[in-house]
Nucleic acid binder design. Structure first.
Lengths: 188, 188
DNA sequence: TCCGGTTCTTAACAAATGTGAATGGATTTG
DNA sequence: CAAATCCATTCACATTTGTTAAGAACCGGA
């Protein structure tokens, strides 16, 4: 039997069996139905989770419209770093776009993990850095590319998302209106 | 005699005198003239530095145009995290917009620092997180606001930069053309 | 299966932003 | 100091994107 979570862990660092067991002892299985929130807008984030299956979006609200800023899927970890570390109400909510099976832990458990082995802090840093690099790239795309180019780039780089994310969310992620995205798709 | 670097350090964590001395032992003073690079486009980043005075921009190139993605000034640390940690050629160059006095160290020295006390790793994480939160906010602004709103927000939040950064760089940072920024400024 | 809502598309028009070119002022350089 | 360059502005016009409204296609639930 293989465990995707362990596979992903070992890609990042050489965790010992003991370290892995400690982590698994903290994790609790949970089901999140499509459309439900892992983290509601304005709430304080208290959990950090691995996604075994399914897809979520991280999003902010603007004039009542949900604007995704990131997507996470099976094999990814998810959480609202800022709310989680500062205890402030989150500016970024997390909602399931598909039924999800996840394994979650609390902030206190994560702290215990950090104390149990220095490797876990490096692990966290690695995850933060990955998201940081992605956001930096997305940001550069906004400054450099027009709407059409951003859409083509998204299609090329995230073909896995094209058919799993509703187009009006993709449009919002790219900073354009759904009608404009339709037009871009039509005119090739 | 006060040292801005030490002030900033102590805002982040309770470093001991010994830890501070270790850091200072690694740092080398350097002058970077306005217009010169701290990190040239495409080079591998080998240094990490504190800015005692002056202003730099982190930027990427697009069709030969410099597009800033971040600014750092006196009191800030600077470096290209991705190039620095992965050893890859940087996608983000760093250029002085004003004459700068900096104190820099090498990657090897930073590693020594990490080994000397766990506090330094936490320190690095804190710096990464801050930039991460900033970029995340800038990113959300791109998706949510039009050019005019982005400019007003920038004026409100970064009045310290308005008169130190040339307007064509501010325009590029905001993802618009200099002429469009001129028009926005004119029409109020 | 049918219904009711949601998502996607289309179109005409409005508004925002880009483009190219010219000007004048400021700044740098020799 | 003068020449040269760079930078900000302005304008007319082109292109892109937003807005509003309507209908078509696609669901999910009764």
């Amino acid at each position: 039997m293989t465990d995707r979570l362990i596979d992903e862990l070992l890609k990042i660092d050489r965790f010992s069996d003991e370290e892995v067991v400690t982590l698994l002892g903290f994790l609790v299985n949970k089901f999140v139905r499509k459309g439900d929130h892992f983290l509601n807008p304005g709430q304080v984030s208290r959990h950090f989770a691995f996604i075994d299956s399914g897809l979520v979006m991280h999003y902010g609200l603007h004039d009542g419209v949900e604007i995704p800023c990131n997507f996470s899927m099976e094999g990814d970890w998810m959480g609202s770093l800022k709310s989680f570390t500062t205890g402030s109400p989150t500016e970024v909510a997390i909602k399931a776009l598909e039924d999800c099976w996840i394994r979650e832990m609390t902030g206190g458990q994560l702290q215990q993990l950090f104390l149990s082995s220095p490797r876990w802090l490096l692990f966290k840093n690695e995850l933060v850095q990955r998201v940081f690099f992605n956001i930096t790239q997305h940001n550069a795309d906004f400054a450099k590319l027009d709407a059409k180019a951003r859409y083509y780039k998204f299609m090329k780089e995230r073909p896995d998302l094209i058919n799993r994310v509703p187009q009006y969310y993709i449009a919002a992620y790219l900073g354009i209106k759904p009608q404009s995205l339709s037009r871009i798709r039509k005119e090739g």
